[in-house]
Amino acid sequence: MRRLPAEMAFGLGILALFGAVALLAPVVAPYDPHAFSGQPLERPSRAHPLGTNDVGHDILSELLYGARVSLTVALAAGAGTVLLGTLVGGAAGYAGGWVDRVLMRLVDGMMSLPRLPLIILLIAFLGAGLPQTILVIALLFWPTTARVIRAQVQSVRTRGYVRMARLFGGGPAYVFLRHILPAIGTLVAHGLVVSAGTAVAIEAGLAFLGLGDPTAKSWGLMVRFALNLPGLFLTDRWLWWALPPALCITLLVLALTFLGIGLERRLNPRLNRRWQ
């Protein structure tokens, strides 16, 4: 067993920490995040380590519960993106010919669309909500994965061993499961991690813009509420209200990025070597 590279260990560690917090939120959080557990805008104290927000919710509890939202979005939107991308990319790469051309045309077209304005437009019309957010992210971000998967499937498909497997009578299903899927496994994992990171950032951004699910208290939403307070930056208040959720978002995205880098190293060992 090889030692885990530092970046992978870091990424996995942070993820595990957030995962534990999300699972154990009811246990570790001092209050229900929706309970009016204190006076509005309390400064940090023993009772409220991060103070309270403008309506008297405990900020620390909000922060701990927020992990649930972010991780849900990360997992669901990441999986959706990768699923769509793998299906389209796999189909294009495996089928080739006009199927490939049509699908890749679609991918190119989608990649040239400015995504954030489009997301805003879609969410504005679909209505703000966690399911909508997840759906929109998956629908808009699959082309990146599709492109990578297609390239890999294409190169595997033309390898000798796949041709031989076909000669031996292996059908498309056999070839796909036995030869192509293993070849794209790490790529899919990498895609999942990267998409999850994007999803976290997008969800937070949408919430920040007021397009988040008003019922799901996410980190982005916390920043949004904090910013709604006039003159937030004139006092220290933002330090325990806006900064912690922003830092949590950063940390989670960073963890996923590092995990992605680790997987990429595994995909492409050339990156490891230093050139003279």
Binding site: A201, W238, A242, L243, A246, L247, I249, T250, V253, T257
Partner: peptide, 10 residues
């Protein structure tokens, strides 16, 4: 590359 702009901005 991983810090949200609003954090830097704040």
């Amino acid at each position: 590359a991983n810090v949200p702009v609003y954090l830097t901005g704040m």
